[in-house]
């Protein structure tokens, strides 16, 4: 790849912290996610170019970008779900293969057929199938754990409900509970706020904050620009290449947003004006 690094001057503090994960010592905490020079192509057409990113530990991180900017692909490439044309990804300093048990994944809700004959509890238990192992049924211990995970998202009363009788927001919470049941250290969530009701949005935000308080790192594909400041500590701005990444206050600027969305966002200037006004925090 002779492409010059696309990280902009915005991410000024970037170079000094790069590459700590390889051979990291005890004193330096290993980054939960280190993406190095990752390129992904579908049918020879690149969808992600030379992505470099190091996630800080214990933060809520939003991946923001227009449709088709490769947000989902970035997560999938990280989780080995789509092949990478180049580059490597390290999770807590090791390839994903070896760290799967420490990673929770919440796919897009619309990626599955909800008219599937299982209950909410069954879906949550799926998060623990690896732990349960082959040839073994889901024992009471794991059913209890699944119930607890449902309780955390406020869905314990719906444990035995068939999943197609749940509302979109409830389905999303079940998906979240499935990842929580894994008790991972790093979570990837693909648009958990898409098409959910206000109650679910609040429940999810609460969960995100709880996760942060217990030292977990959460990376969320996020669409609603209005709430980025309120919900997330860090932002990754993505549009096929990495536009900028870093603390929300520094990176989530009108200028960067314009670079990310280009002409695609008609409301951008309005939003920019709104954000230019001093924020009361």
């Amino acid at each position: 790849m002779n492409e010059s690094p696309v990280i902009d001057h915005e991410a000024m503090q970037e170079p000094q912290i790069r590459l700590v994960a390889v051979g990291a010592t005890e004193s330096e905490p290993v980054s939960p996610l280190l993406i190095e020079d990752v390129t992904v192509a579908y049918h020879h057409r690149p969808v992600l170019w030379n992505i470099d990113y190091q996630a800080p530990s214990g933060k809520l991180i939003a991946i923001v970008g227009p449709n088709g900017s490769g947000k989902t692909t970035l997560i999938k490439a990280t989780l080995d779900l789509v092949p990478r044309a180049a580059g490597q990804v390290l999770i807590f300093g090791e390839p994903y293969r070896q760290q799967r048990h420490r990673v929770g994944y919440v796919p897009q809700r619309t990626s599955v057929d909800w008219d599937f004959p299982v209950s909410a509890l069954d879906v949550v238990a799926m998060g623990m199938y690896r732990k349960i192992g082959w040839l073994r049924p889901v024992s009471r211990k794991y059913r209890e754990a699944a119930k607890q995970a449902l309780d955390r998202v406020g869905m314990v009363d719906f444990a035995s409900r068939q999943i197609n009788q749940l509302s979109g927001g409830q389905q999303q919470r079940v998906f979240l509970a499935r990842a929580l049941a894994q008790n991972a250290d790093l979570y990837f969530m693909d648009e958990p706020f898409a098409g959910v009701d206000a109650a679910t949005e609040r429940a999810i935000v609460d969960i995100l904050r709880q996760l942060r308080e217990s030292g977990k790192t959460v990376i969320v594909v996020h669409h609603d620009l209005q709430t980025v400041h309120e919900y997330f500590d860090e932002v990754v701005l993505l549009n096929m290449r990495l536009i900028a990444a870093g603390p929300t206050a520094e990176v989530f600027t009108p200028d960067n947003l314009r670079k990310t969305y280009g002409g695609k966002l008609a409301l951008l200037d309005q939003l920019g004006e709104k954000m230019a006004q001093p924020r009361s925090r």
Binding site: D80, P107, F116, V118, D122, M126, G127, R130, W134, P137
Partner: peptide, 18 residues
């Protein structure tokens, strides 16, 4: 049974879980 049901319901999640 478990693994097949997971495959049928959510192939991608199954793959992510290894």
């Amino acid at each position: 049974f478990k693994e097949l049901s997971l495959l049928c319901f959510d192939e991608e999640f199954a793959a992510a879980r290894g």
